[in-house]
Design a protein around this nucleic acid. Sequence first.
DNA 1: TCAAGGAATACTGTATTCAATTCATGCCTA
DNA 2: TAGGCATGAATTGAATACAGTATTCCTTGA
Lengths: 231, 231
Amino acid sequence: MPIEALQRPQSLRQQVYERLRTALRAGEYRPNQRLTEIGIAEALGVSRTPVREALGLLSREGLLSSMPHGGFRVPDLRADDLNDIFELRYLLEPYAAGLAARNADHEGVTGMHVVIQTEKQCLTDSDNIAFVQASQDFRSRLFAMAGNRRLAAAISQIEGHAQFVRSENFDDWKTRTVLISAQEQILEAVRLRDAENAAKAMRGLLTTTKNTLLAALDQYRAGDAADDALY
Amino acid sequence: MPIEALQRPQSLRQQVYERLRTALRAGEYRPNQRLTEIGIAEALGVSRTPVREALGLLSREGLLSSMPHGGFRVPDLRADDLNDIFELRYLLEPYAAGLAARNADHEGVTGMHVVIQTEKQCLTDSDNIAFVQASQDFRSRLFAMAGNRRLAAAISQIEGHAQFVRSENFDDWKTRTVLISAQEQILEAVRLRDAENAAKAMRGLLTTTKNTLLAALDQYRAGDAADDALY
DNA sequence: TCAAGGAATACTGTATTCAATTCATGCCTA
DNA sequence: TAGGCATGAATTGAATACAGTATTCCTTGA
């Protein structure tokens, strides 16, 4: 019987953190919207303390902006920021994909294959949430296979900055099909231990992701302007 | 007249964070040493709250390890970790140096030149603390010149992980002379807007830094073993 | 003498309370 | 009427109190 690492009950701070992070990544809050500690605490049914700490962590990661005594705000990302973010992702993620190809093992590859099958199933089922989760899973497995925890952590952190637009913007069938085929290319290169092509395929995936996000950003800002007119 | 960001009084949390971060980077705490909230709070003369939040931030950044109900510990870095860290630094910092060369402007270059002169003065004065600060200043200016804030943030974060050994290990004159000459090479390449050579010089600087740290790590562990015998 | 169990202590996680600061609204004055 | 000032509400920052958990040490039995 294998001994698994026993998991202790996760703290409220961690739960609040996860909840807010996914909410931010899903674009549930508007840019420049102010997040008050007490508001979130009451919404989640906890006291201010864990909320406070979770907000501090998110702020440190760059998913929120803060000022002393000024509270926390949702940062207003612009196209410039997106360029900065993707410049970094272009640097990190293809490199990590190449490492993963070098260190590829059979179990890892089959696991990622299963994840892609799950994604396809989600696509036919139109289960958007599960699709996003599976897509995250694919990335986690890939970067874990690279074997450099710090690199994986850096990628995880910077990628969070880019996932700010509403998930509705990714709900179209075409984009997801392209995403899956790009992941299949990556996986095939990893299976063959072809680092060069794995990196190349990752670059392709990043390009499509960036373009999708840029288009979503335009759409988002257009909606923003319309909303502003109402106020 | 340029509008400067008005500065608000910095919070206790921030002060505790800075203090602990520099202490950790200076190697004031031993690997695996447990840091208790109340101990730090009493030492700094504040309550547990800001200490707690600062520890949480440091833990999230990877400078401390934590478990639920298990408190915070100083992570026990080994040579493997150093390899992971420097693999990432090799990826990020030469790239950033190349960007800085592309975007180089006159004021920035002269500013960095002044910093190097300061370093030399500190070397003759044997002012170690000022030297380390000036060295940090050089890096800040260089990476700021690269023009990508997220990249600079990523570098700042990962570099903190590597600065764990006692500053005494860097106090020898030879290492610092090599450091200065490497910085001068970088600056010269930046001045000529030669991205290729700037990146190359940065790689050289990283190699010497890594070797110094590896040697310090050996020395450190040897000292550890000796101490363990005493307990 | 050593191991196992239990009790006591210490520490973390969370809630609550108090103080300090900021922002906004409204009034007063020029 | 416009601008400046003051007052008050709201929110953040920090401290303290309390409950639950883990660790440590001591005792007891084999």
